[in-house]
Amino acid sequence: MSYKHILIAVDLTDECHPVVERALGIVARNEATVSLVHIVEPMAMAFGGDVPMDLSLLQQQQFDQARERLQSFAGRYPQLGEEQRCLAYGQPRQELHRLAEEQGCDLIVVGSHGRHGLALLLGSTANDVLHGAPCDVLAVRLKKPKD
């Protein structure tokens, strides 16, 4: 199968560089278009729902920091120009599905920690993205960071 547009989803940690490298290999073999995305989750979601204070300033700071980190992260890959980088705000699964549909992507590439036990029951971003995705999904196994 030949892919035309590949969406790479990253969390901007060093351990997700293999995700980008694997995706860029597929991009090169298919002469595909590529987009790199990082999703900033709403702080209320991270804290489990209702937070009785205004988090808008903190959320904007988080978004600004994510923009800087995305530029730095993507700077390692000359084939990822400014126009191919995207910063989105929301729930990762929903945003990745939305972006894939809007951009006409036929492959989403994400990292997976391959969790087991309780972490598996709670779910993961890779698992969430897989269900209901508008296109193929490739989950690249990530190595556990060394302690």
Rank of each mutant, 00 (worst) to 15 (best):
Leu99Phe: 09
Leu80Phe: 08
Lys144Cys: 02
Gln59Ser: 07
Ala46Asp: 06
Leu107Cys: 01
Leu12Asn: 11
Leu87Val: 00
Gly117Trp: 13
Pro52Met: 14
Leu7Lys: 04
Gly90Glu: 04
Ile8Ser: 12
Gly75Trp: 08
Asn30Phe: 02
Pro92Ile: 01
Glu82Pro: 01
Ala126Trp: 03
Glu82Thr: 02
Leu107Glu: 01
Ala133Glu: 03
His131Gly: 07
Arg76Ser: 08
Asn30Gly: 10
Asp54Ser: 08
Ser56Tyr: 12
Asp147Ala: 15
Asp11Thr: 04
Leu121Ile: 04
Ile8Tyr: 10
Ser124Trp: 07
Asp50Pro: 00
His116Gln: 14
Ala28Leu: 15
Arg85Glu: 04
Val129Gly: 08
Lys146Met: 14
Gln84Pro: 01
Leu107Ser: 05
Gln60Tyr: 11
Glu83Asn: 10
Asp50Val: 04
Leu120Lys: 13
Phe73Trp: 09
Glu68Asp: 12
Ala74Phe: 09
Gln79Ser: 05
His113Ala: 02
His97Met: 07
His5Pro: 00
Val20Phe: 12
Met53Ala: 06
Leu120Asn: 07
Glu82Arg: 15
Gly75Asp: 07
Pro92His: 09
Gly117Phe: 11
Ile108Gln: 05
Arg29Asp: 02
Ala139Tyr: 01
Gly49Arg: 13
Gly90Asn: 06
Leu120Ala: 10
Gln79Cys: 06
Ser72Cys: 08
Asp11Asn: 07
Tyr89Thr: 02
Leu121Lys: 12
Asp64Phe: 06
Asn127Pro: 02
Ala23Gly: 07
Ala66Cys: 08
Leu138Trp: 08
Gly123Asp: 09
Thr125Trp: 06
Pro78Leu: 12
Gly49Phe: 03
Pro78Asn: 12
Gly104Phe: 04
Gly117Arg: 15
Glu95Met: 13
Gln61Asn: 10
Gln79Thr: 00
Cys16Asp: 12
Arg22Ser: 05
Ile6Gly: 03
Ala100Phe: 05
Met1Lys: 03
Asp106Gly: 06
Met1Asp: 01
Glu41Val: 03
Leu80Glu: 03
Arg115Asp: 02
Glu101Gln: 14
Leu80Val: 00
Arg22Met: 13
Val40Ser: 11
Ala28Lys: 15
Ala88Lys: 10
Asp64Gln: 05
Ile8Ala: 11
Thr125Ser: 11
Lys146His: 15
Gln79Asn: 05
Cys16Arg: 14
Ser112Gly: 05
Leu130Met: 12
Gln65Val: 00
Ala126Val: 00
His116Thr: 03
Val109Leu: 10
Pro134Glu: 10
Ala119Arg: 14
Ala88Cys: 07
Leu130His: 11
Ala139Asp: 04
Asp128Cys: 07
Arg76Phe: 03
Gly123Glu: 10
Gln103Ile: 02
Gln59Lys: 12
Gln71Trp: 02
Asn30Pro: 00
Ile6Ser: 12
Pro145Asp: 07
Glu82Leu: 05
Met43His: 14
Pro78Ala: 14
Val10Lys: 08
His17Arg: 14
Arg69Asp: 10
Gln59Arg: 11
Asn127Leu: 09
His97Ser: 06
Asp14His: 14
Ser56Asn: 11
Ser56Thr: 10
Leu55Pro: 01
Met53Ser: 01
Glu102Tyr: 03
Arg69Lys: 15
Gln65Met: 09
Asp147Pro: 07
Pro78His: 14
Gly48Met: 10
His116Gly: 13
Thr33Arg: 15
Asp50Met: 08
Ala28Pro: 05
Gly81Met: 14
Lys143Trp: 05
Leu138Gly: 04
Pro18Gln: 13
Cys86Gly: 08
Gln71Ser: 12
Lys146Val: 04
Glu102Ile: 04
